[in-house]
Design a protein around this nucleic acid. Structure first.
Lengths: 387, 387
DNA sequence: TCGTTAGTTAGTAATCTTAACTAACCAAAG
DNA sequence: CTTTGGTTAGTTAAGATTACTAACTAACGA
C-alpha cells in the first residue's frame, strides 16, 4: 500500500478525468462531473490543465438537451499528444514502429536479427528510430518511451532479459544498454506477454478482465491477463504452457530438461508437426507444408495434425479449467490455419472443461508485436496515460 | 478506478498506520513516521484516533537508542478490539467459531449438516453463535461480521451459492437468508478459496504473493492467490483442478458431464482410490483403508495409490507450469498421508516443470475452515482491518 | 422573459506538511 | 550529586494543496 497525499489525490482524479474523456469522448465538463462524481469546479480545473498540457482538445459546442439550456463544450482526447515506440525483437527480424496514443502505427521499420545478434543491435535500432522520427517530423521530447518484446524470460522491473535462447541472451541488461542509445524510458517483456497486453488494449480481448493468449509456433507459449493485469508468476515464468503434460503414458519417458523444451511442445507445436510428418514421409516437411498437405487430403498429414490438435485441445482445456477466463486467443504461426481446426479444438475444450469459454484467433497482423510492446510501455510506465 | 478525496486519503493513511503497527509491533509513532514516510504530526493524529477507537494500545516506554534521547512510547495492535465469526458448512458437519483479529479461535461449535439440510440450518447456526457469544461475554456490537465457507461454486458479490451438490443448494441466497438471523455483514465463498485465504493469512503461505492450495479428498479442488489476491475466474469457477486431463489415451472415452466430475478426479481423488482398490479386491475399501494397506505392504494398494499419485503429480506439474507460484499447499483428506507420497510427488513435479516450486502440507487442523472463513471476511469486508 | 443547462467564482473544510517547539532521556563534566 | 549538552520522541502552529458547496454568470430554446 502506498501513502496518499494531496498530490496523489490530484493525480488520481486527473487520470480519472482523462480516462473518462478517452472512453466517452466527446463529452462535456458537466457530464464528466456527473459520471465520475467529482464537483464541477474540480473537473473544470483539471480539464483546464489537461488542455494546456495538450492531452485533450475542445471540439466546439454540442447539442443542448430537449429542455433547452446552454450548449456544452465537447472535449476529446488528443491521441497525438505524444508517441510511443514499440519494438519486437524476434529470432529472425527486429521490427520497430511508432504509434500515437490510440495505438495507430504511424511508421514501421525492420532489419534482420542475425546480422546484429552479436553486437550493435541497439545501435542499428537507433538508426531505424531516428529515421522514423524524421519521417514523422517528431522530436525526442514527443516520445513517451519504448516498449520491447523479446522471445524469452524477462525481468521487467530490472529491465533485463534472463534467458532468450533464440537470441543467445542470458541475463542481458537490455534497459541499461538501451539507455546508452535512447533518452526515454525503456521497458522489456516477454513477447507473449506483450501480445496479450496488445490484445487486451486494442484486439480481441478489449477491456476483458481475464484473457489467455496462446502462441503456437515453433514452440508453445502463453501469456495471461488476470483480474485486468498481466500475470507474470513468481519467477517471471508463468504461462509455460509448452510444459503441460497431457499424456500420462508417453510423458513417462519424456525429459523436458534433456530435450530443452516441454512435453506439450513436443507433441503439439509447429515444429513437432513438421518433425513427425517428416519422419513418416521420410523427407523434410515444415508445419506449413503439413497443413497444405492436409487440406489436399493427405492422410498421414491429417493423422499427425489431428493428434497435435487433440493434444493442444487438452492443454487448452486444462488451462481453461484452472483459469476460467473470458477468452482464449490463439496466435503464432500455427494459428494461420486456425479456421481449419477450430471446430475440433473447441469440441475438445468444451468436452473437458466445467464451463465453456470462447476461443478466437489473434486479430493483429505484422503490427501485433509493435502494438503489444507499446501496450507494455503504457501499462508499466507511470504516466497520466494508462491502459 | 475510484475518485479520491480528503476522506479517502485519510482512510488510506490510517489503514497504512494500522497495518504498520500490526506488522511491526511494538513500534513508536516516530518509527512509524519514518517507515511509511508520513510526517510525525499526521501519524500522531491518526494514532490518537486509533487509540480512541480501541484498535491499538500504548504499552509503556521502550528503550532509548544508544545515543540517548527520550524513550519512545510503544504501540501495539489490540487483537481483541473486535471479533469475527467463521463458519465452515461441510457435507457432514457445520462448524463455527469466533476468532479475534489475529485469528485465534476463542470458541467453537459444530452440528451435523444432514439434520438441517432441508431447513432451519441458519436458525440452528444462530443458536451456536449465541451460545458462543455468551461464553465469551461478547455482545453483537463487538462482532465485525461473518465469513462462510461452502463446498460449491459461489458468487461472493451477490452472496449466493450458485451450486453446491453435497448440500443440494442451487442459486441459494445465503446472504439474504443469513441477514434474517444475523445483524452483521455476511460473506460466503467456496471452501477451497477460504482455505487458501487462511493459509495466506496465518498458515504455510504467510505473506506470499502467489499460492496454490489443492484439496484432495472425495474430489479434487483448488484455490489460488495471485498477485496477493484471491483469484476467482470470470465465472467464479477458477481452480477446477479436478477437470485436468493428464492422460490422452484414457481421457478420450471419458465424459465429465455424464460422470458428474472431472477426469483427474476420476483417477487421483480419494474416492477414485477407494473405488479402484475395491474393484481389484472385490470388496469395499475406503481411501483411508487403502493407505493403511499400502503401508502394510499390500501390493494392489501400492499399485493403485502410486498411479493416483502419479496422475496427481502431473496435474500439479501442469498447474505449476502455468502459474509459477511461490508455494503449493496440499490439503484435504488424502493429505493426511502426504508424508508417504511426498517424495514421489515432488519428483514428478520437478521433472516436468520449467522451474521448481515448494510443495507442503496444509498446516491447519480442524480449525482450518473457521480461520479460512474469517480470512475471507477480513479480505472482503471494507473495514480498517484488512488482511 | 422564463426555465434550463453549462461552466465559473468565492469562500469553506479537510488533510497533509514543514518548522519550531516542548518533553524526556543519557552521559559526561564539574 | 548536580549540571549541561547532545539526542530522540512527540506536539503545536502556521501554511499549502485539494476538493466541496453555494451562488453566480453565460448561453440557449421556446
Amino acid at each position: 500500500m502506498q501513502k496518499s497525499d494531496a498530490a496523489s489525490i490530484k493525480n488520481i482524479n486527473k487520470q480519472l478525468v482523462l480516462s473518462c474523456i478517452r472512453h466517452f469522448e466527446p463529452i462535456s465538463r458537466s457530464q464528466i462531473s456527473k459520471r465520475i462524481q467529482i464537483s464541477k469546479p474540480s473537473v473544470s480545473l483539471m480539464v483546464e490543465q489537461l488542455l494546456q498540457e495538450g492531452w485533450i482538445e475542445e471540439k466546439g459546442p454540442g447539442e443542448s438537451t430537449i429542455s433547452g439550456g446552454r450548449k456544452p463544450v465537447q472535449l476529446v482526447f488528443n491521441p497525438k499528444a505524444a508517441y510511443v515506440i514499440g519494438v519486437d525483437i524476434g529470432g529472425t527480424k527486429v521490427a520497430s514502429g511508432i504509434t500515437c496514443l490510440n495505438g495507430k502505427v504511424h511508421a514501421y521499420r525492420e532489419f534482420a536479427t542475425s546480422d546484429y545478434l552479436s553486437k550493435d543491435l541497439f545501435k542499428r535500432l537507433q538508426k531505424d528510430v531516428s529515421s522514423m522520427l524524421e519521417d514523422l517530423w517528431l522530436s525526442n521530447s514527443e516520445i513517451l518511451g519504448m516498449g520491447i518484446g523479446v522471445p524469452g524470460v524477462t525481468n521487467v522491473e530490472q529491465g533485463i532479459v534472463l534467458d532468450a535462447p533464440s537470441l543467445k541472451w542470458k541475463r542481458y541488461p537490455v534497459r541499461k544498454i538501451a539507455s546508452e542509445y535512447f533518452s526515454f524510458p525503456v521497458y522489456v517483456e516477454n513477447d507473449v506477454n506483450t501480445s496479450v497486453l496488445g490484445e487486451q488494449w486494442l484486439g480481441a480481448g478489449k477491456s476483458l478482465r481475464n484473457i489467455i493468449f496462446i502462441s503456437v509456433g515453433t514452440g508453445i507459449g502463453s501469456g495471461m491477463i488476470i483480474n485486468g493485469k498481466l500475470f507474470r508468476g513468481s519467477n517471471f515464468s508463468a504461462g509455460e504452457m509448452g510444459y503441460l503434460v497431457t499424456d500420462y503414458e508417453n510423458a513417462k519417458s519424456y525429459h523436458p530438461t534433456y530435450e530443452g523444451y516441454g512435453f506439450l511442445e513436443s507433441v503439439a507445436s509447429g515444429s513437432s508437426i513438421g518433425h513427425k510428418l517428416s519422419a513418416v514421409k521420410n523427407q523434410t516437411v515444415t508445419a506449413k507444408e503439413a497443413f497444405t498437405l492436409w487440406k489436399k487430403g493427405d492422410e498421414s498429414a491429417q493423422k499427425v495434425i489431428e493428434e497435435a490438435v487433440e493434444q493442444l485441445g487438452y492443454g487448452i482445456a486444462n488451462y481453461v479449467s484452472l483459469f476460467d477466463p473470458d477468452l482464449v486467443i490463439i496466435g503464432g504461426g500455427v494459428s494461420e490455419s486456425f479456421d481449419d481446426y477450430k471446430a475440433s479444438l473447441i469440441e475438445i475444450v468444451e468436452h473437458f472443461t466445467p464451463q465453456s469459454c470462447k476461443i478466437v484467433r489473434s486479430t493483429f497482423g505484422k503490427e501485433a508485436g509493435i502494438v503489444g510492446a507499446v501496450a507494455l510501455f503504457l501499462e508499466e510506465h507511470d504516466s497520466i496515460i494508462r491502459l
